[in-house]
Design a protein around this nucleic acid. Structure first.
Lengths: 216, 216
DNA sequence: TAGATTGTTAATCGATTAACAATC
DNA sequence: TAGATTGTTAATCGATTAACAATC
């Protein structure tokens, strides 16, 4: 399981599955009970070849001459992604961003649910935010002893990110969605997905910059 | 300028520049006035080869036998990314997520600044949030007539995303940071960076799922 | 059946890595 | 100078695309 490969499945393929799923859900809602690889690929801005190649890592879901049954393919991808299962999560860092994530509408429908939130600010301890209780981050290991949690969403300040991430790993967390603008260094079995707003913005801005043909 | 290539520079290279920049800023703050490609690469979880290859698209910044002057390289990357310039932006969609972005600390230091916010909720019109005035989204074109804005951060609900994005393009916006969980379809000259929380989370969860060696 | 479209193999393309001459 | 490390070229690797036989 290297950086670009999860059990023989390219990381890029995995990244595209949620896109496919979203497009299929839309298509189904729009009443399209049937969809071809080129139709689905068109909506997702990929080639039909790539879509079929991606799906082939997981099995066969269509019929020659017909295409895919929208609902069957949607359900299949849901199962591949584990959307059918419940995924309890914790939030670590209850700032403005963290709070906005507690009520983020896109999570619940996909089986993701915050069970606890943690912060270092005593004023927050014991509060319920959007139905999620906030505890002292020092209680992390103890609170996770009774309920095993795989996934943590990390929204602490940059300075606290590495040490907090280590606490999380010590408490049994195996996957971290990291919003702190820092590269975490953790044991290799821990999976980290980075969401770096300012990096995305810099990437965007770069592409808008006027540039002479080759060098700048 | 295809999808994977901006004026001959691979998109993946561009995505890594902000990482390098962040690591260099940290190194400088920690008092390291000098850094080698393998040191910097190590912190960024890439190979030294890749780092040097990436930099070579933009010029030569180091010295054989010595490495890089941290500050020189940092300044060079800042110039490449345009961090030295000011980038006014607008926020469209003043929900909880949007509000949290208005005060996001990582933007200002890199030249990004929100000048206006827009929403469709009349209760918000005329308010100042974190010093940013909120206007009716229908005034978008008019408000942007006097001040040209390249970049918009889009945090409207999924249903409104496509039509709002089209409004933005009509008002002259050329780059959109899209938080709505939908694939936008816009003229090819418009640059879109997607930030899809639930997609990231699904990608993360997939990697944590127990899987038998090959298929599932 | 004829037309359409899948699943998969082979060909192409691009990105990463390795290697090393140049040189500080 | 000797050792270290860059910038760059060439080799490798992996992902995307094209093509097509299978078949609904």
């Amino acid at each position: 399981m290297s950086k670009n490969n999860v059990d023989g499945i390219p990381y890029r393929t995995i990244k595209r599955l949620p896109q496919y799923r979203a497009a299929l859900a839309d298509a189904l809602e729009a009443g399209h009970t049937r969809i071809s690889s080129s139709q689905l690929a068109g909506v997702c801005n990929v080639t039909a070849s790539q879509l079929r190649q991606d799906l082939s890592y997981f099995g066969s879901f269509g019929q020659q001459g017909y295409g895919y049954d929208t609902e069957v393919l949607l359900t299949s991808i849901d199962r591949i992604l584990g959307i059918d299962q419940n995924s309890p999560m914790i939030l670590v860092g209850v700032g403005r961003l963290g709070r906005s994530l507690l009520s983020y509408p896109g999570f619940a429908g996909k089986g993701f649910q915050f069970v606890y939130a943690f912060d270092s600010n005593p004023e927050l301890f014991g509060m319920q935010l959007d139905g999620v209780p906030v505890y002292d981050v020092s209680e992390l290991e103890q609170r996770l002893a009774d309920q095993a949690i795989d996934i943590a969403v990390l929204t602490v300040p940059k300075e606290a990110a590495q040490s907090t991430a280590e606490l999380l790993v010590a408490a049994g967390v195996r996957g971290i969605m990291n919003f702190a603008p820092i590269q975490l260094h953790l044991p290799s079995y821990v999976v980290v997905e980075n969401v770096h707003f300012s990096h995305s913005l810099l990437t965007l801005a770069f592409q808008l910059k006027p540039r002479r043909p080759v060098t700048l």
